[in-house]
Design a protein around this nucleic acid. Structure first.
Ligand SMILES: [Mn+2]
Ligand SMILES: [Mn+2]
Length: 318
DNA sequence: GGGACGA
DNA sequence: TCGTCCCAACGCAGA
DNA sequence: TCTGCG
């Protein structure tokens, strides 16, 4: 008798349009599973939940203990979307939250991710994209990493690659290891580990120093101007995102873009002309992860020494 | 997406 | 038990 | 003070 080769069972039943599942002891309900979220690609909510179920083991370490911004697309990538930060009175008891009082003195509750259930609950609200803070609740004012965010205007992705390589040159010169990923949209993100040793202000100052040096090298096609109209169509070297309460799409996040692209970590030797955001999607991300493993592991490791590094930058670049 | 409301 | 309505961010750079 | 920005 031959054993039938059974395909690995997916997280959700392909035949059901609604399903409740207990995850980390938390009962989650998934509705409208056949609703198409990416119409060109015929990708459904069910596909999205199955992706986050499978990617969770790689992704959760980058979500754990982090306050979250929810960017919700309850009707797919072309439907209206909105941000949600306050989850007061809307969150199941099994989810963790953090009290937050804003400038106006209003008391809010931010979701704090803890495990796979947190990830799947966000997804169930229509969060195609997953947006974690750069810091954890235990050290809310101290980011684990500094991010240099490359935001092209109309440039070809090869131009983004060139700018990323320029950033690597500067960081190499001062002995800093950095970790690149595609944003999954039009740009790239470069992470520098900080080990929660510095403030957001210090992190932002460091990003500004790096970006200034890079801009000096390639002023023809990059800009540090915050005002879009003052950029003159050049690629924005965004260092201002290093502040509390600000987020970007996290590593392994899907994006609400045609192709169901994923924000994917890269090795620096992949940062070469010809690379595109379309290289990494809901279809091939899990397979790639099985091959490459988690290329972002170093991001949560021991951080750099900002004082020494800044000094070195000053001595080398005057 | 989901909760509150009234028909 | 429906259909409809309504709600769901934020801080700050820089002008 | 207000708007643009991501
Ligand atoms: Mn960006
Ligand atoms: Mn940006």
């Amino acid at each position: 008798m031959t054993k039938a080769i059974k395909p690995e069972a997916s997280f959700l039943d392909p035949a059901k349009d609604s399903q409740s599942v207990k995850v980390n002891g938390c009962l989650l309900t998934f509705n409208h599973l056949s609703k198409v979220y990416w119409p060109e690609d015929r990708i459904t909510k069910r596909d999205m939940f199955n992706y986050y179920d499978q990617v969770a083991e790689y992704m959760v370490p980058y979500l754990k203990d982090r306050p979250m911004s929810l960017n919700r697309f309850p009707n797919g990538i072309y439907g209206p979307s909105f941000y949600q930060k306050n989850v007061k009175d809307k969150v199941p008891g099994c989810m963790a939250t953090m009290p937050h009082t804003n400038d106006k003195g209003e008391e809010k509750e931010y979701l704090v991710a803890t495990n796979k259930a947190s990830l799947l609950w966000m997804a169930s609200l229509g969060c195609i994209e997953i947006n974690p803070w750069f810091s954890r609740v235990q050290s809310a004012g101290n980011p684990d990493f500094c991010v240099i965010d490359l935001d092209p205007d109309k440039q070809h992705f090869d131009q983004v690659v060139s700018a990323a390589q320029e950033i690597k040159k500067v960081l190499d010169a001062i002995g800093v290891t950095a970790y690149p990923k595609t944003s999954g949209s039009t740009g790239m993100h470069i992470y520098i580990p900080l080990g929660a040793k510095y403030t957001y202000d210090q992190s932002q100052m460091f990003a500004k120093i790096i970006v200034s040096l890079v801009h000096k090298q390639i002023p023809e096609y990059t800009s540090m101007e915050r005002m879009v109209r003052k950029r003159g169509g050049k690629m924005y070297l965004d260092f201002l995102q290093n502040r509390p309460d600000a987020t970007i799409a996290g590593v392994y996040s899907l994006r609400p873009k045609p192709g169901a692209t994923v924000s994917m970590p890269l090795s620096w030797d992949e940062v070469k002309p010809g690379l595109t955001m379309r290289d990494f999607t809901i279809h091939n991300a899990i397979q790639r992860l099985k091959e490459t493993g988690d290329l972002f592991r170093g991001v949560l490791g021991k951080g750099i020494d900002l004082e020494k590094t800044t000094e070195k930058a000053q001595s080398i670049f005057q």
